[in-house]
Amino acid sequence: MIAYYMCFGLFFVGLYGVITRRNLVKIAISLSIMEISTFLFFALIGYIDNGVAPIVNPADPDKIYVDPLPQTLVLTAIVIGLATTALLMAVIIRLYRKYKTFDIREINELRG
């Protein structure tokens, strides 16, 4: 059970970063940390003791396989995570070129 709690702790670290930091790059890093904790949780709930990776050997079919369904869900989520991080980075670099700062408080004050 302790692995689940550690995984949840990683999620909390990301949430803490999103709430308390004022730097846009730090916020992007915290978001990706939260994403990674979710991937780890999905991989954890599919694991089986003494199981093998879900690749069937036709000569020896009676093995215990790890659950393939959570792995499938994570596989698509990882690539989407890359795309959303890229979108976030594009917004951040555009904001930096306009306001010359990463600080969201100063960007709020320099509005217009």
Binding site: A53, I55, L75, T76, I78, V79
Partner: peptide, 8 residues
Amino acid sequence: HLTPGGGF
């Protein structure tokens, strides 16, 4: 479809 990996 045979080994770990795939399109992504």
